[in-house]
């Protein structure tokens, strides 16, 4: 390829990009390359003198371990539950906030609260709420008469993942709803006007106009939330540490265990890259499949 002279425009582009490139090179580049490099070695910190280069062995070991695939299954289940629920709830919220009614501003301001809560405080709060002894959830259900005796929440292996997903969903709905609201606002109002003239009932209008128009919003939200859910670590760490009996042992938690509990930095890094690659593939597949329908 012939080397094209750097144009004036390109020079100014590079100038404008210089700050960003400098920051990413100085801060982010090394950690990414380092962890990629480490993933090719059998690094266990307990054996500091024995760290052979093993090529892709760490990756092969991870991918051929049944325990990893069980964790991957849980990650997939958690993410599917979380993304689906966020999409449904956020759509309803966005449609609500798209209406004009008194108090709408207050409502949309309140909606942002979960989004702004620090994850440490969020974990702390849900741990309290779900507590089997003096938690708020049991207290509320008892007082309302829905249950007769205190229920076990996170301690019940069948409920753990959905309950952690609920805490995740609660925090994620606001942003998702806003992204969808933004999309709703961009629907030309004459589309609705035309449908109203045709006398189409509200529900039909929703299905025929709103839902299709929301597709780009759905794509963005699904993409963003899936990326967040797949890599989500905080709640698993703060609420259950992978328990009970491995019921919340997802890949993000496994990476933590490999790295910091087992001190197998090589395996932990390999697992991280597998997760990153899976995230990228999923994003690509999602973009492709949704884009076709657009």
């Amino acid at each position: 390829m012939a080397i094209r002279a750097v144009s004036h425009d390109e020079r100014s582009a590079f100038g404008l990009l210089a700050g960003l490139v400098a920051v990413l090179m100085a801060v982010t580049a090394f950690p990414i390359l380092y962890s990629l490099w480490i993933s090719l070695f059998a690094v266990n910190l307990r054996r500091p003198l024995r760290m052979p280069f093993v090529g892709l062995d760490n990756y092969i070991a991870v991918l051929s371990s049944p325990a990893f695939w069980e964790s991957a299954g849980r990650t997939a289940l958690f993410s599917a539950m979380a993304v689906a629920a966020v999409l449904v709830i956020a759509t309803l919220v966005a449609v609500l906030l798209d209406q004009e009614f008194p108090g709408r501003r207050v409502l949309s301001a309140c909606l942002l609260i979960p989004w702004a809560i620090p994850s440490v405080a969020n974990g702390l709060m849900w741990k309290w709420i779900y507590d089997a002894n003096y938690g708020a959830l049991n207290g509320l259900l008892l007082q309302l008469g829905f249950i007769n005796s205190a229920m076990i929440w996170l301690g019940d292996a069948n409920r753990t993942l959905p309950l952690i997903a609920n805490a995740f969903i609660w925090k994620e709905v606001p942003l998702a709803a806003i992204l969808l609201l933004v999309t709703l606002k961009s629907i030309p109002s004459d589309l609705y006007a035309a449908a109203a003239v045709d006398g189409a009932p509200a529900f039909r209008r929703f299905v025929a106009i709103t839902l299709p128009a929301l597709r780009p919003g759905f794509l963005l939200v699904a993409l963003y939330e899936a990326m967040m859910a797949i890599r989500h670590f905080d709640l698993f760490f703060l609420l259950t540490e992978g328990g009970p009996g491995g019921a919340s042992d997802v890949v993000a938690w496994r990476i933590y265990v490999e790295t910091f509990r087992n001190l197998s930095f090589g395996t932990g890094a390999a697992m991280s890259y597998i997760l990153a690659l899976a995230t990228l593939l999923m994003s690509y597949a999602l973009i492709r499949s949704m884009a076709e329908k657009l």
Binding site: D131, A132, N133, Y134, I152, G155, P244
Partner: peptide
């Protein structure tokens, strides 16, 4: 309680 699998030392104390 079957919930003991999520009861940590601090929760034992508080209970």
């Amino acid at each position: 309680s079957p919930g003991c699998v999520t009861t940590g030392e601090l929760e034992v104390l508080k209970t």
